[in-house]
Each structure stands twice: as C-alpha cells, then as structure tokens.
C-alpha cells in the first residue's frame, strides 16, 4: 500500500492531465460550452418539478421544492458522474492500457476532479436559488465536507468494482446506466426520506441505507437546512460504513487485477 501511494504521488500530474482532458473534450465544439454544466441541472430541475411537485406533490420536509431538489442534485451529479464515467473508464482507454504502463487506478480516480468542477457550478447555482432557505454556517460547511467525502468514497468504490469487473464481464457495461437510474429513484433527491418511513416496514428501511445517497443527503440537508436527522443514526451509520467498505474493497480488488488488465482487454 505504501509503495502504491508513492507511485500515485509520482504520477499525480497524470491524474490532473486526464481530468483536464476530460473536461476540455467534453464540451469541445459545442456552442454553449461550459454553460452545459448549468443547463443540465436546470433541465433536470424542471422535469423533477413537474413530476414530483406538480403531479405527485411529494413532501420536501417543508423546504421549498427548488432549493430542496437542487441541494440533492449537487451530490447526485457528482456521484453519478463518478459512477458512470469511472466504471467505463478502463474500457474506453483500452489502447492506452495495451500500450503504456501507468497506475490504472488514476483513470477512475481522475473522474472525481471533473465531477468536482461540475459540482462547483451547481453549488453556485444552489447558493443563488436557495439563498433564503439555506443556513450558511460552520455546521453546514462541516456537513458539506462530510457528504462530499462520503459521495467520493461510495461512488469511487462502486466505479472501481465495476471498472475492474467489467473487463472480465463485459455485460456489466450494459447494467451501469440501468443501475444508476435505479439509484436515482431510490435516492431522496426530489422527495423527503421520511416518505419511506410510512411506506416501508422498519426492517426494510435499514436496507435502504445501503444506498449511500440516503446517508449523504441526510447529512448534508441536516446541515444546510438545519433539519436535524430525520431518520435514525443507525441508518446513517450503515450508509457511512457501507461507503467506506465499498471504497476499500474496490481499491483492493482493483489492485489485485491491475496487472492482468492488458491481457483481459
């Protein structure tokens, strides 16, 4: 582990270069360019507003719908980008993997840098939209950092697993978009997690917290909207523990198969 760490620091320029490449290439030759980083969440918001607010009248814990949903999209966007881009990163870089050696894990990890830039855009948007509803305190900053770390560990953990396994089982590449969509609906982005309390038996509720987004959003909203923890500490602990377990196990598995990767492509 120590020698790996040393190698990663030697190659840190590569992580940054890969992220720059992804960022520049993504909006290359588009007319609106980086504005898309704002347009996408705005469009999502519009649809979510129609479905969850107008049609379903979902509860949002007494917070105005737009502020509430946007607070969720900040982390969902980050989580989703890491998961889907990270999971596909090895297969996309297949010629590089067959021709050049470098720590492969950087392909996956560097996606977080790109996702962070998006996150900052949405965060700025959020500050404007939720100016009246949010509480910008030290506590909310703490909850932001905690939620960000958890999002990083959980999404990277999943991405590492998917990326490494999908070299052997290409079918996984088909599952990833579907898996991400499933997580989106299971995550209380545009609705209150309290809805689950009435909808599900208590025994099953704890299982819901295996979805890291449950814990992430509760921690973050507890801070920014001063909501307090609506659910139990148990659930959140499950989310935290599971996120860390995903990351650690994903990292270890990834390292284990790293040297065989070129042969599997």
């Amino acid at each position: 582990m120590a020698s790996q760490w040393k190698e990663l620091t030697q190659y840190r320029s590569l992580g940054i270069s890969l992220a720059r490449r992804d960022f520049k290439v993504r909006y290359a030759q588009t007319k609106l360019g980086t504005l898309w980083a704002l347009i996408q969440p705005l469009l999502s918001m519009a649809v979510l507003f129609l479905v969850f607010q107008r049609a379903l009248q979902a509860d949002t814990q007494s917070i105005p719908f737009l502020s509430y949903t946007l607070s969720g999209l900040i982390f969902w966007g980050f989580f989703n980008y890491n998961l889907s881009q990270g999971a596909a990163s090895l297969i996309q870089a297949r010629t590089m993997l067959q021709k050049i050696y470098f720590p492969r894990i950087l392909l996956v990890l560097s996606k977080s840098l790109v996702a962070s830039v998006d996150l900052i855009f949405v965060l700025i948007l959020f500050v404007f939209v939720a100016f009246a509803d949010a509480h910008f305190t030290l506590f909310s900053l703490g909850s932001f950092v905690a939620a960000l770390l958890m999002s990083f560990f959980a999404s990277q953990g999943l991405a590492l697993w998917f990326a490494a396994l999908s070299l052997r089982f290409r079918d996984l590449q088909q599952i990833i978009p579907f898996f991400a969509q499933m997580l989106f609906f299971l995550s209380p982005i545009a609705y209150s997690p309290e809805l689950w309390h009435t909808a599900l038996n208590e025994k099953f509720q704890i299982l819901l917290y295996l979805n890291p987004m449950m814990g992430i959003l509760e921690i973050w909203r507890a801070g920014i909207f001063e909501l307090g923890f609506s659910a139990n500490i148990n659930g959140i602990s499950v989310s935290i523990a599971f996120s860390l377990a995903l990351f650690l196990s994903g990292w270890i598995y990834f390292q284990k198969v790293e040297r065989k990767m070129a042969d599997l492509l």
């Binding site: 030697q10 190659y11 840190r12 320029s13 590569l14 940054i16 270069s17 890969l18 720059r20 490449r21 520049k24 290439v25 290359a28 030759q29 590089m96 050049i100 470098f102």
Partner: peptide, 20 residues
C-alpha cells in the same frame, strides 16, 4: 484529437510518466 498540440504535449508527457 480534440486537444491542441500544446495540451497534448502535457497529456502525453504525463501519461509517459513525466511531471508537469
């Protein structure tokens, strides 16, 4: 292909293990 020559020098150099 989308990146400029300058950007590719940095990208390729760092893939080959050079620091910025």
């Amino acid at each position: 292909p989308e990146l400029s020559g300058r950007e590719n020098i940095y990208l390729n150099g760092s893939i080959l293990g050079m620091s910025r």
